[in-house]
Amino acid sequence: MDHGQNQIEIPFDCRHLCWFCGEPAGHAFTFPNSRQSLVTCVHQPVTLPACDECRKLAAKANKTSIWAVAEAVKSELIRRYHKDLAIGVNWTQESLAQSGFEGGNFAGFQKSAWFMYQVARGRVNFQGWPLVVNGVELVDEPEQEAFTFDGITYPSLTDAINHYCQIFHLDKQYFISVLQVYTRKRFAEAVRFCRLTLADTPKERAVMLKSLKAAVEAEVE
C-alpha cells in the first residue's frame, strides 16, 4: 500500500484485515490526515487497511503516532461494546449452554451471546502487524502501558477500571482507592471487594477501606 513515496508492507495473510481490530477491511486510513497535523506526527505518514468503524474512530483521534491512535480506537471499542464484553465476565460458554433459556424470551441471547463476546474480545485483543515503510520498521511508541486481565488486553489500566466500573456500577473513585491498596496485580480482588460494598454508605465504605489497608499492610509484615 502506497502513501506518496512511502510503501507500506502488509503480510499476505493480513492484506484484507483492519490493522486496528482484525475485522475485514473495506477502507484505508491515512495518518496523519487533514485533521491530524503532519508537524506533530513522530513518524512517517502511513496508510493502512481499516474497517469502516475503526477508520471513523481513528480519524477523530488527536494523537501524534499511529500507535496512540490505535489505543484510542481500542478504548472506544471497549466503551461501545462493553455489554458484549461483559458477557465473558458474567458467563462462561458452558453456563450459557446450561442457562435454560431455550424457548423463552432470552433464547436469542443464549444462542448468540458467546459469539458476540468472542467477536468483541477478538477485536479488542487484535494486535496490528509491525509497520514497515520502505524496508524500515517503524518503532512502536505506545503512550500507555497495556493491561491484560481475564483474557482481554486493555490499552491501559484506566480502560480496565472504566470497563469494570461500568459493568458492575461501581463508584470509580472508590474503586481506584481500593485498587491502590491491592495494586494492579490483585485487580480481581479489588473488583470483588467493591462489589461486596456496593450497597454501603460513603461512611461505611471509608471504614471498610481503612480496614482493608490495615489488612494488606499486615500481609506485608
Rank of each mutant, 00 (worst) to 15 (best):
K172L: 07
Y117T: 07
E217S: 12
A68K: 14
N33E: 01
F175R: 01
W67F: 14
A215K: 15
D159L: 12
A206K: 15
K74Y: 07
W114T: 06
A70I: 04
I152E: 11
W19G: 00
K185Q: 04
Q110R: 12
L57Q: 04
E94G: 04
E217L: 11
F193K: 03
F149Q: 14
I66S: 09
K111A: 15
E94H: 15
P32C: 12
F187G: 03
W129M: 11
L138H: 09
E219G: 08
D150T: 05
G22E: 03
D84T: 04
H3Y: 08
D150A: 15
C54P: 05
E102P: 02
C41V: 02
A59N: 06
E145R: 15
H163V: 09
Q5K: 15
Q5R: 13
P142T: 08
K111Q: 14
K63M: 11
V132W: 05
G128I: 10
S65T: 11
N90K: 09
M208I: 02
E141T: 03
W114L: 06
C194V: 09
N134S: 08
A97M: 13
V124S: 02
Q144I: 04
Y154P: 00
G104C: 00
I10W: 10
R15M: 13
A61T: 07
F193P: 08
K56R: 13
G128P: 07
Q44A: 15
A218G: 03
N162G: 12
L85R: 05
T201Y: 04
T40C: 07
C51F: 13
G151I: 05
R205K: 15
C41Q: 14
I66C: 04
P155K: 09
V136L: 08
K111F: 11
R79Q: 09
D150I: 08
A25I: 02
V178I: 09
K210M: 11
L170A: 02
Y174E: 01
N33V: 01
T92M: 12
